[in-house]
Simulated assay, not measured.
Amino acid sequence: MLHDYRDAQSHLSVPLPSSSVQQLERWKPPTGLNYKVNIDATIFPRQKASGFGVVIRNERGETMAAVSARGPLVQNSKEAEALACRKAVEVAMDLGFRDVTLEGDNISVMSSISSTSINRARLGFVYDDIRCMGRGFRTFHVNHVRRTANTVAHSLADAGLIEGEMVWLEQDPPPARDALYSDSCHISL
């Protein structure tokens, strides 16, 4: 029976094309004295809420700060991500970080924050607020990353269904320990 099971498993496995393997992006630590601020958001329609996840890490991949928070009901993922970005910038600023790179996996939101043109869309004031707060840092960069490079923030956003807000300073947040471990396995120092 074991032989039949293994034989069946080999027939069920689907090989990944080499191009898919190459597209797998992992989290990369920042360089120098910069800090990476990864964000993600999720929507909980049944609970009429959203969840935000923020993690700030240094060049060794160590968690400097992390936040898992419940947010308001939003219309779509774009709105949730924009509000999560604003929350992340506010947290980084309040904690005194001076050189940050904001990373998220929603290309539309990250592009809107990076843009220097006036955004008259419904969320334009949120993007303007983030850019204005970003000027308070010594260096402020915005990057889009794939979901596979944003798993820690995603884990924290999923845990955001809790009431209020959970903050961890210089310790790994329990909801994201597996994702942090996975990231650390791919960091070459």
Rank of each mutant, 00 (worst) to 15 (best):
E25R: 05
L169M: 15
R70W: 08
T139G: 08
A66T: 11
R70G: 07
C132H: 11
N38Q: 09
T42V: 06
N119H: 13
L123C: 04
N34P: 01
D128A: 11
L73M: 11
L102G: 10
A8M: 10
S50P: 05
N38W: 06
R122D: 05
E79Y: 10
A84I: 04
E79W: 12
G160L: 07
S108E: 15
R98C: 07
V37F: 10
M110Y: 04
R26Q: 03
L12E: 01
S68G: 09
Q9I: 01
D7F: 01
A66M: 09
D183R: 00
L12C: 01
S108Q: 15
L102I: 04
N76Q: 02
D94G: 07
D172T: 15
T151M: 13
N58W: 13
L95T: 02
R135E: 14
H3G: 08
A149C: 05
L16R: 11
F140D: 01
T101L: 09
E163R: 06
R120N: 05
K87V: 11
P15M: 02
V21Y: 09
T31E: 09
A65L: 15
H186R: 11
F137A: 11
S112C: 04
R177N: 02
I107S: 12
M166L: 12
A8S: 15
G51V: 02
K36V: 06
V14T: 13
P15Q: 10
F52P: 00
P17G: 00
F52L: 03
V54I: 15
A69F: 14
R138Q: 13
Y35Q: 07
N119P: 06
A153L: 05
S108P: 02
Q47E: 13
I43S: 06
C132P: 00
S13F: 06
L12Q: 09
E170Y: 13
A84M: 00
L95N: 04
K28F: 03
R6Q: 01
D40H: 12
I118T: 13
S188P: 03
T42M: 05
F97A: 00
G61R: 03
A84S: 01
Q75L: 10
F44I: 07
E103I: 01
T101A: 14
R147M: 01
L73C: 14
M133K: 15
S115C: 05
V126K: 05
I56A: 04
H3T: 09
H144V: 04
F44P: 02
F125R: 03
T148P: 00
N106E: 10
P173K: 07
K36E: 05
V14Q: 15
N143W: 12
V55D: 12
K48R: 12
A8G: 13
Y35L: 08
I56T: 00
K36I: 01
H141K: 08
D105N: 13
A153V: 03
L73Q: 14
M93E: 08
N76G: 07
S155K: 09
E165L: 10
H11L: 14
D158Y: 02
D158I: 10
S50C: 12
S77D: 15
T139Q: 08
G136E: 09
H3S: 07
T139M: 09
R146L: 12
P29H: 03
